[in-house]
């Protein structure tokens, strides 16, 4: 069970987050001010902390600073009503692992929290495997079973991201940020088009589908059922 600490002073937002996380089966702890949040984050082990940028008592970024100074490396997702890029950079620089601006969709937050919680700890892996997929990170070659996949570099990166977060829902915004490195609303079905191309290459005719679309949220790489 995923243990999540939510530090959020706005009652409505907090209730929304707690409800959504509980429904997804997370164990949620809520703190509504800075000092209490900091104490809790240091006292108990959590998989992820979601941290509001503006908190009574202790500012979110200052809290993050102290948390990192105390040697706590729990992944932290900073939530903020400030959407500007500069704010985001400040949030990440202060030791945050991800940044989401308010208002947000619950599904988007949940997907990001799951990805943070299950962040691959070993970055030195040279070969990624999922179901019958095999990605050689050194040779930049991908195979499905015996079939070599003919992927462009960006498609390889996209597939790598999906494999690293297999069985987790990833949103379009997350893919656009993580795979392309851009953070704006691409408007059209841009990500879908790229994913569609990748899907046609990965899921060949007659093969069980690995890449699935999650309606209204994003995509998930899922192992075929038995």
């Amino acid at each position: 069970m995923l243990r999540v600490l939510v530090i959020e002073d706005d009652g409505e937002t907090a209730a929304e987050i707690v409800e959504d996380f509980s429904a997804a089966g997370f164990a949620v702890t809520l703190e509504t001010d800075g000092p209490a949040g900091l104490a809790r984050a240091q006292a108990e082990p959590f998989d992820v902390v979601t941290l509001d940028r503006m908190l009574p008592g202790l500012d979110g970024l200052a809290l993050l600073d102290r948390l990192r100074a105390a040697g706590v490396s729990t992944p932290v997702l900073v939530l903020s009503a400030l959407s500007s890029v500069d704010e985001r950079i400040r949030g990440l620089r202060a030791g945050g692992d991800d940044y989401l601006s308010k208002p947000f969709f619950a599904a988007e937050l949940r997907a990001r929290v799951e990805v943070l919680a299950r962040r691959p700890s070993d970055r030195d892996i040279t070969v990624l495997r999922f179901a019958d997929l095999q990605l050689d990170l050194i040779g930049r070659a991908a195979r499905r079973g015996e079939r070599l996949l003919d992927l462009y570099p960006r498609e390889f990166k996209l597939l790598e991201f999906l494999v690293r977060h297999a069985e987790q829902v990833v949103t379009r915004a997350m893919l656009f940020e993580q795979v392309w490195g851009y953070r704006f609303d691409p408007g059209t079905n841009l990500v879908d088009v790229h994913l569609g191309k990748l899907r046609r290459k990965v899921d060949g005719p007659g093969e069980p589908a690995l890449i699935h679309t999650v309606r209204g949220t994003g995509f998930v790489l899922r192992a075929p059922g038995p």
């Binding site: 960006r154 392309w180 691409p186 059209t188 079905n189 841009l190 088009v193 790229h194 569609g196 191309k197």
Partner: peptide
């Protein structure tokens, strides 16, 4: 180049 890479598949489709 990055824009082209991003949008070429959209045009192709």
């Amino acid at each position: 180049e990055a824009v082209a890479e991003l949008y070429a598949p959209v045009a192709e489709e």
